[in-house]
Amino acid sequence: MKGLKIAVLVKQVTDTRETVEATVGADGTIDRNALPAICNPDDLNALEQALRIKDRIDGSQVILISMGPQRAEEVLRDGIYRGADEGILLSDRRFAGADTMATSYALAMAARRISPDLILAGRQSIDGDTAHVGPQTALWLGWPQVTYAEQVTPCEDGSIEIRRVSDDETEVVRTTLPAVVTVGGSGAAECRPSNVRRILEYKKQPVTVWTADDLGGDTSRYGLGGSPTQVVESRTIVAGHKDTEWVASDENSLSEFVARLVESHIVE
């Protein structure tokens, strides 16, 4: 089988799963600076699928693409330590304020420069949670898309077979290449850890940075200007619309409480 050139889209996110009391302010908002910045979990699942293809087919190549500020190169380096061949960071003030539409446009323009056979991406990010970027990148490139994939397997005839999960079913689908596939979910294999030898080898190698000028395309589609959605308000939810009854956890109070629950048929 001929080696595949695979681009993997990765995003640096704040690890909101690590939210503990210490990081939540009195108003209920999270202190994001107190949380670690990590590679989005689903993106690591996508990387693992790419690396498995590389293991299987000689001559395959895995290229990471991320958009973000300079420090997002951490996730590219992390991916290289795990086995990716190179990383490209799209970083430019003109990309700032991008919603999923403008982000996917920049990613698609970068992919066009690399012309991969296959793009793998995480199903969704834990900070935005939209699951838009994969399908929208596919649209800009005019490629087919397969979402909610757990496993990606190249076939002899040059197509790929994908196991995916929908709300009600598990499907096996086949698509021609090039295509965009988003990976994630509990059935997707975890990503292999960093390799010590690779850390030593690539620690000092700089990652490639591309700006809007490098990407070309329609520059009005980048950043805030290319973003049709606008966040107009973020409001902290102040709960407390209910008259909460406080129940003490000692023996007697609990006993009296449970008796009341049973009596009022809340518990049957």
């Binding site: 908002t29 999270i30 994001r32 966040v231 973020s234």
Partner: peptide, 9 residues
């Protein structure tokens, strides 16, 4: 994504 916030878009 910022916990306990509702965002209007």
């Amino acid at each position: 994504f910022v916990a306990n916030q509702l965002t209007t878009i």
